[in-house]
Simulated assay, not measured.
Amino acid sequence: MTRSTVFAPFDIVEGDRKRGIVLVADHARRDLPEEYGSLGLPAAELDRHIAYDIGVETVTRELAAALDVPAVIANFSRLLIDPNRGEDDPTLIRQLYDGTVVPGNYPMAPQERERRLDGFYRPYQDAVGAMIASVAHASGKAPFIFSVHSFTPVMQGFIRPWHVGILWDLDDRVARPLIDMLAQDKNLVVGDNEPYDGALRGDTMFKHAIVNGFAHALIEIRQDLISDRKGALAWAQRLAPIVDAIDRRPDMHQVKMFGSRTGPL
């Protein structure tokens, strides 16, 4: 974990914007601005899944390099504020996460909540929106958005059986072929809207893909499979030809409004 006096809320990985693909990594890092210290947590807690999606930064950077596409990576821990939640989501700033109390988040004054929104959450979301707009302009077509996440093998005592899961709402243009292609490997247990449901109002995919009719999906890779560089690189290499093949499908760069299971757009 690194800290600096000037804290950049996001990082841009450059790639060929004419390809029409954008990668996003909402939970890739566990960093905290210097003024927040460790949010009152022991250092070991910041190594856990509660602080970030283990392995995702390497997978995202390697996948971006393999495909030659840009990516937007959030630089702050989701314990500070979760960039993959709506601003009105009660889990936006967690005070308790998987059994761990976060002292620096309790109590949460309205002024501090707004400070974190303005200083970290909104700049990241603005960067995602700006990249999508730039890619759309450069490519001359509706972009394909791919969000990379990872999940802990055990949550609240439940051993999760999946190696990977694909999250989606109503637009299955990316999700269905992605699930089918991954499932061709009979050694993989592939979750369909597991271990979470992809219908989450206000999250990054909702804000930037669903409401605009852009093809998209969110992948969740089990963290023990990508916790070291070798595993993360292997998954990036596995995903690159699959994402490339999906990108070539005829409807991938068309605007299509599917709506959302969360309610009217």
Rank of each mutant, 00 (worst) to 15 (best):
T2I: 09
V6S: 05
V6A: 15
V6I: 05
P9F: 07
I12H: 15
V13T: 14
G15D: 09
K18C: 04
G20L: 06
L23P: 10
H27Y: 10
D31G: 00
E34V: 14
E34F: 00
L39P: 04
G40E: 08
G40R: 10
L41Y: 13
L41T: 13
L41S: 14
P42D: 07
A43S: 14
A43K: 15
L46C: 13
L46I: 03
D47M: 04
H49C: 04
H49G: 14
I50Y: 12
V56S: 06
E57W: 02
T58H: 14
T58I: 13
T60G: 04
T60C: 15
V69Q: 09
A71R: 09
A74H: 07
F76A: 11
F76R: 10
R78A: 05
R78D: 09
D88P: 00
I93M: 14
R94V: 14
T100Q: 13
P103D: 05
N105A: 05
P107F: 03
A109W: 01
P110E: 06
P110H: 01
E112D: 15
R115M: 00
R116V: 00
Y124L: 09
Q125I: 03
D126P: 00
V128A: 08
V128S: 04
A130L: 03
A133L: 07
S134E: 14
H137C: 00
S139N: 01
S147G: 07
S147V: 02
V148Q: 11
H149R: 13
P153K: 10
M155F: 09
P161N: 07
W162A: 07
G165E: 04
L167M: 13
L167I: 13
L170H: 13
R173M: 03
R173E: 07
V174I: 10
V174Q: 06
P177H: 10
D180L: 07
A183Q: 12
D185T: 02
N187V: 05
G191M: 11
D192A: 07
E194G: 06
D197L: 08
G198I: 12
R201S: 10
T204D: 02
F206N: 14
K207T: 02
K207L: 15
K207C: 10
A209R: 08
N212D: 09
G213A: 11
A215C: 12
A217T: 12
L218T: 15
I219R: 02
E220C: 11
D228E: 14
A232K: 11
W235V: 08
A236N: 05
A236L: 12
L239E: 09
L239D: 12
I242H: 03
I242Y: 06
V243I: 15
D244F: 05
P250V: 09
D251P: 01
H253I: 07
Q254C: 06
Q254R: 14
F258Q: 05
R261G: 02
G263V: 04
P264S: 13
L265H: 01
